[in-house]
Each structure stands twice: as structure tokens, then as C-alpha cells.
Design a protein around this nucleic acid. Sequence first.
DNA 1: CGAAATGTGAGTATGTTGTTTATATTTTCG
DNA 2: CGAAAATATAAACAACATACTCACATTTCG
Lengths: 207, 207
Amino acid sequence: MSTRIAKPRMRMRKVPRQARSRATVEAIIEAGAHVLSELGWAGFTTNKVAEAAGVSIGSLYQYFPDKLSLLEAIRRRHFDQVLSVIAESAEGGKPLRRFAQELVRGMIEAHSIHPTLHQVLLDEAPGDRGSRAAHASFQARYLEHYTAAVAQYRRRRKDVETIARVLSSAVEGVIHNAARRDMLDAPELRKQLVELICAYLSATRTG
Amino acid sequence: MSTRIAKPRMRMRKVPRQARSRATVEAIIEAGAHVLSELGWAGFTTNKVAEAAGVSIGSLYQYFPDKLSLLEAIRRRHFDQVLSVIAESAEGGKPLRRFAQELVRGMIEAHSIHPTLHQVLLDEAPGDRGSRAAHASFQARYLEHYTAAVAQYRRRRKDVETIARVLSSAVEGVIHNAARRDMLDAPELRKQLVELICAYLSATRTG
DNA sequence: CGAAATGTGAGTATGTTGTTTATATTTTCG
DNA sequence: CGAAAATATAAACAACATACTCACATTTCG
């Protein structure tokens, strides 16, 4: 018997070879992110994405076999971006306050283009059909950075994981709320978010 | 000429008089909240709600002129619940830690039934057609309680509003994240959230 | 040139869904 | 009781949305 290879969930119907088509694909993903962020999952239609990308609907289906595969592409790209931002700020042995500042700056920057994309991707858009692994992997690595930071700035070793999760979701909550109110670049907000992180991570009393 | 009264956005097509119908209406709203929380706005259909309520679709339209009016009813009910919870914990001159504990307890309790309803109502579901006032009023009163608490426990008078918003959105973020992971009743989470609130509100340094 | 790559967009097929309506059952109350 | 009012039912529909195809046009490249 021949080795049965599981059908590898053809990501793209056709591989873009020329520069022109690569630009098209990029435009589609970018427009998709925009539509998704602006109209939410309910308003995310292939026709709208194609129009927003300045491309015919046919072109879209030339590279993406269906709607969900496009969603996956958007998701992967966005998560990669966010992840690299977090990674940068969490590395090295910088002092707490500096870490917080860079983290906040990075998160704000990452959300400045498509303010609510992150939340839509997490909450509204359907969980990933095949690539649950990818999603879990992202979540894991995402939390990993926070965990590392917590371990570094907190003396008590207890509840490190919980603390990391609380911290990350708190930060996300603030960012998301600010994005909704179109207040991402308010400097007071930035300062206060840094303040929150520092206060929590340097708290003396432990639950 | 007779006094022209502006058509007051007929909330209900028919007013329920008997106990039976009042129960029906209640069941519809309750089922609606459930569907909304479980399937999100995209999965919120009148037929599904009727089915979930164990009621015929006709009954639904006997009391709600259209889908949006049902949404409004759900929204109003949920917001009232949350608001009363917050109000309770924020009143009186109790010490900081106790305030935080009660707030967290209340928020968790309020989200235990329909874990993600709050977020869906805020993010996915369409903004209110006529009653923008009601929504704004809720937001205002909601924040008001946080502001009062911040003013009470923070010495510095500066940035009170921003701090209140940061705090509330951080709390919401943590709650929401926990709800998504079905971890609302984990005790470590509760403790850490209390910890976060206390740490932030009693921070010495001010941004 | 000619073949491969790429782009087009009207059209379709398929479903969804909000809402109506004609009819049936239950409650109220003189 | 019995008639009218209130309430419940669910089949059916009309209108719309939208994911996706296909036959053909245009561009790129060797």
C-alpha cells in the first residue's frame, strides 16, 4: 500500500508566481483585515473584500479556495505581527517600568491599523477548522511571553500562570476598549496602562 | 387639531395581560440572551430564539414588532442587572480591598449565566436605532460608579476619568477572557483580579 | 508569437431569515 | 355556560444575501 497522505487543506488554489499576483494576494488579505475589523464577522463577505481590495471577486477565488481560508490567512498574518511585537518588548533584562512602556507602545501600535481586528478574530470569527493547532500555538506563545515577564518581575513563584493571564487579558481589555472609542493614541491612556502593569507586577501582597 | 404624539417606537406590539403571556415574553427574552451569548450576533435569528424559548415564532412577533426591539429588550435587562451589581459594591465607605472583592464577586456573578452576552452586546450587536440615549445613559452611569470609587481611593485628583476607564476596561477584559475560557469560577482568578484592582488603585506613583 | 499566468464580473444556485397569516387553543368574565 | 378576548401555533413566503463558478479578456514571459 502507498503512504496515505492526508489531504493537506490546500491553502491556495493557485500559487502566485509573478509579482503582480503576489501584490493582488497581499491586497486581498489587507482588505480582508480591514473589512473584518470595520464590519465584524457578520459583515465580512467575499464580495465586499474583493471590492475593498480593488480586485474582482474572481481573483479572490483564484487564490483562496473559500471564505474560511481567507480568514485563516488574515488571522495568521495578524497574529504573527502581534507576536513579534510582544516578543521584542519582553526580551532582555530591562527594568519593569521600561518593559511596561515598550509593551504598551507595541500593543497600541499593533492595534493602530485595524483597531478591533484582534478582538473580532478572537471572539466573532469561527474557530479554525483544520488549524486548531496554529491557533493554540499562538495562544501558547503569546502567553509565554507574559509568563516570562511575570516570572522576572514577581518574586513569589506562585500563580505565575494565572497572573500572566490576568495581566494579558487586562491589557487587552484596555486596548480593546480604547480602540472602540477611537482613543488608542491618547497619551494619558498610555501612561495609565503602564501604571496599571507596573502596579500589578510590583504588588507586595500576594493573593 | 388634535395633539400629534410622535409614534413612540412601539416597544411591544401587544401588551401581555395574562400571566401566561408574561411568562412567554420572559422566556423569549431569556432565550434571546442565551442565543446571543452562545451564537453571537451573527447566529441570533428570531426563529432560533423562538425555538430555544420553546415558543412558536408567531408568539415572538406578537410581542416584539421586529428583531431589533427584541435585542433592545435583552440589552436593557442585562444592563440593568449589571448596573445594580456595580452600584451595590461601589456604595458606602468600605475599605479598598473589600470594595474590590465585592466588585469582582458581583461582576463574576453577573456574567455567570450568559458569559459572553456583555461583550456581544457591546461589540457585535448593532448600536441602538432609537434609544442611543439609553445606551449612553448606561455607559455614563456605569463609568460613574467606577469614577466614584477611584475618587474615593486615589489621593491624586488628576486623570480620575481616565483611571476609571482603564480600570473598568481592564476588569471587563479579565472577566471576558475568563468567560471565554469557561474559567469564571476559578478562585485564583478572583483573587488575582482583586489584587490587580487594589494594586492599581493604591499605586503611589502617578503617571 | 504563443503559452502560461492572471484578471474580470455577470450570473447562479442555494440558502437564510424576518415576517405574515389563517387557524387553533386557552382564559376571562357576564 | 358561552362568547369574546387573549394567546399560541407553525406552515409558508417573499425578499434578499452571498459564496462561488465560468467563459472570456488581458498581461506577462520565454
